[in-house]
């Protein structure tokens, strides 16, 4: 049995969650005040994901860099890999919101897309 301690992020309550795992399976979530806390606790210990937002260099645009993000959640553990993969990426203006900047970043199956016009 393993216990993991988390802070729920759904509301300002910030409930201190205790998630109990047995061989990677969630046995119980305690400390939550509502159902959303339990869902969050389960996901966060079994498959934590994040959206990564960053910038890449742009030539000929208004700014030195254009804003980008992962088009959907990626595994939390890959955050630094993805930011590192954006090193040296340069794009040319014009760039539009939604343009794919890097396809299938770090083998996640997720694209990096532009989030700002430039």
């Amino acid at each position: 049995m393993e216990e993991r301690h988390l802070t729920c992020i759904n509301c300002p309550m910030g409930c201190a969650l205790t998630v109990t795992l047995d061989n990677g399976e969630v046995v119980s979530v305690t400390g939550n005040t509502c159902k959303r806390g339990e869902i969050y606790g389960r996901k966060e210990v079994t498959n934590p994901t994040r959206i990564v937002t960053s910038t890449v260099a742009v030539d000929g645009g208004k700014d030195a860099v254009v804003a980008v993000k992962t088009a959907s959640d990626i595994p939390k553990g890959k955050m630094f890999d993805i930011v590192n993969a954006l090193k040296g990426v340069r794009v040319k203006s014009p760039v539009h919101i939604g343009d794919v900047i890097v396809k299938d970043v770090c083998g996640t199956g997720v694209d990096i897309i532009a989030t700002r016009e430039d």
């Binding site: 802070t7 992020i9 759904n10 309550m13 994040r50």
Partner: peptide, 11 residues
């Protein structure tokens, strides 16, 4: 926001 404390600091 709690979310920012967890995802920007705790992470």
């Amino acid at each position: 926001l709690k979310r920012n404390i967890v995802q920007c600091l705790d992470d």
